[in-house]
Amino acid sequence: MRLLWQDVPTTARDQVVARLGAPVVAERSQPGGFSPGVASRLALADGRRVFVKAVSAGRNPVSPGMHRREAAVLGYLPEPVPAPRLLHLLDDGDWVVLVIEDVEGTQPALPWRTDQLRQVLTGLERLAPALTPAPPQAPPLQETMKDDFTGWNAFAADPSRLDRFGPWPVTELDRLTALEARWPEAARGDTLLHADLRADNLLLTPAGEVVLVDWPHAAVGAAWCDVLFMMPSVLAAARPAGGLDPETLWAEFGPARSAARDDVDAVLAALTGYFLFHSTLPAPKNLTGLREFQAEQGVAALAWLRQRLERAGA
């Protein structure tokens, strides 16, 4: 469902080219993610390359707002953060076009390779001090996720939606709802989080650097939240290959080792409820595959959460 550069209205393309100072001579659309708009590497006539993201409200009513939020985040990211910088922003009220630095790198392989996963975990651990304290412009996680981290509460209002996920969450619904209610305090911190890390939002450079891309969900919270949010996608991708032990991976991340177990359980419960409940909703416009991906992550997160709770009660 992804668009190409030629699908952007001519007037918008002409304005971007005028700012770039050179015409576009080649395009390579990028795989991964769920943007319904343009996500392409563009080659310019003068030899430069840029990355362009563009979308309109007609493609999806939520996506332009996400591009605007990302533009704001890229404007206040601390300089040491390995992320591409915003070069130009075009916003005509309908189409939003971001021209971003192009990064020479590749996404981690799926299923995840152990060496690449450890490279990412090490990179994120080293990055945490540069993101702490967070820039004052960044919103708290409790604000950005307040309407999303309510999945178990929503299931409690309509338990029939839970049937597809097996008997355990139905039996434990009261406990899971109580855990979810604790997440705002459990996630409190002063670190700037990417808050949407997955393989398609990471680039590994030839120099061994881990670059974080796609920043619209950035928020402030506990330093360990970013890896916790990433874990379900890692576990879901690994499942066909025999799986990975989430507790072993979790213990390899420094901030995770200092996190209170009950706080981790509360945030993991909220994340699991978010994925599972949203997977039961109708698909958003032009976001093919999103609900299926949320279900995969939710099932993986649920298995990890159950493992943690049953071990704690043993």
Rank of each mutant, 00 (worst) to 15 (best):
T288I: 13
A241R: 07
L290E: 09
E296M: 09
E296Y: 02
F229K: 11
A237H: 11
G298P: 04
F275H: 15
E252Y: 01
A241N: 11
G254N: 06
F293G: 14
N286M: 01
V299T: 15
L244A: 13
A236W: 04
F293Y: 14
L268N: 05
P232L: 10
L235Y: 10
G243H: 07
T288F: 04
P282N: 11
V299I: 15
A300Y: 05
R239F: 00
D245Q: 12
A251E: 14
V264M: 12
R257H: 01
V299H: 07
A300S: 11
F229T: 14
P240G: 09
F253L: 10
F229W: 15
L276R: 05
A259C: 10
H278P: 00
A283M: 05
L249E: 06
D262W: 02
G289L: 08
G289I: 12
R261E: 03
V299M: 07
L235W: 04
D245E: 13
A238T: 10
E292Y: 05
A295L: 03
A236N: 12
E247K: 13
V267W: 13
D265Y: 02
A251H: 10
A295K: 09
E296A: 11
D226E: 01
L287F: 04
V234C: 06
A237D: 14
G243D: 13
E252L: 05
A241Q: 03
P282L: 03
S233F: 06
A301R: 08
H278C: 07
T272Q: 07
T248R: 15
E296Q: 15
R257N: 10
L249F: 06
K285D: 05
G243N: 06
G254P: 04
P284C: 03
Y274V: 06
L271V: 13
R239Q: 14
Q297E: 04
A283K: 11
A301Q: 07
P232F: 00
A259I: 08
V267F: 14
G298Q: 04
A301F: 07
